[in-house]
């Protein structure tokens, strides 16, 4: 029998090792798996490379993971946002690395990683500093930059509803990077607000097919990151 349901967030992240590359879903707080991230803080794995669009805000979630010095390098498109102070401070002190990637290139590198495509050519960033040192090639009279796929050891993803096969649906714009990150990690760990019986999710509406998911853990009342930030909360509590 296939049952990907795990009964605690601690168990779900227990095998994350030092030096791992971890994809973390979310665009700002929408879709950020804050409970899994907090569990990773408790777990303590270090020297992580994190692939995520942003760098978190306030002192909770991804920002707290960075503040706890567990992240060696960020791969992201927009590392500064309102209320984002942890990453800029460490970056200016030279204590964290940054690989800045255009957002669509980041998405496509992750998609390619999941799809077995090692590299691809994109028009984004041609003639800009973000193409420096990369192969540029002409197709049909236009220039394109070669970009490499990204794969991860683990993905931490937030969804709305899952079943024991790992089929997922998401909530509104919290979907963002979740579906592609699920495909590109060796081990995909998902937190779901609801877990339902197989067959409850209409097969026509499944967004992430279960084959891309390894573990599902229920988090019935995920925290609202902006509320935690507004209340000046800090993790660990």
């Amino acid at each position: 029998m296939i049952n990907k349901i795990i009964y605690s967030t601690a168990e779900a992240v227990a095998d994350i090792f030092d030096g791992a590359t971890i994809m973390i879903s979310g665009f700002g707080e929408a879709g950020s798996p804050i409970e899994l991230i907090h569990q990773l803080i408790d777990h303590g794995a270090k020297n992580l490379t994190v692939v995520s669009n942003n760098t978190g805000s306030g002192l909770v979630g991804l920002a707290a993971l960075i503040e706890n010095k567990q992240v060696k390098k960020m791969i992201c498109s927009f590392p500064r946002t309102a209320n984002s102070t942890v990453f800029p401070e460490l970056y200016n002190k030279g204590e964290i690395e940054l690989e800045l990637v255009p957002q669509g290139t980041l998405a496509e590198r992750i998609r390619a990683g999941g799809a077995g495509i090692p590299a691809f050519y994109t028009p984004s960033s041609v003639n800009t500093p973000l193409a420096d040192g990369k192969e540029v090639r002409e197709f049909n009279g236009q220039l394109f930059v070669m970009e490499h796929a990204i794969k991860a050891d683990f993905a931490l993803v937030k969804c709305l509803t899952a079943d024991r096969y790992g089929n997922l649906i998401y909530n509104k714009t919290a979907r963002n990077f979740g579906p592609i990150m699920c495909t590109a990690a060796q081990t995909t760990i998902v937190q779901a607000k609801h877990i339902v019986e197989p067959g409850t999710i209409d097969p026509e509406t499944v967004v992430t097919p279960g084959i891309f998911v390894n573990r599902v853990v229920q988090v019935s009342n995920p925290a609202d990151e902006s509320k935690l930030v507004a209340d000046n909360r800090r993790y660990p509590w």
């Binding site: 498109s77 927009f78 590392p79 500064r80 990453f87 800029p88 970056y91 200016n92 940054l98 800045l100 990637v101 255009p102 957002q103 669509g104 290139t105 994109t122 028009p123 984004s124 960033s125 041609v126 800009t128 973000l130």
Partner: peptide, 14 residues
């Protein structure tokens, strides 16, 4: 300055 690009380079390319 902390460099940040978001989706701008993809938008202008496409």
């Amino acid at each position: 300055a902390i460099p940040a690009v978001g989706g701008a380079m993809d938008l202008v390319a496409g």
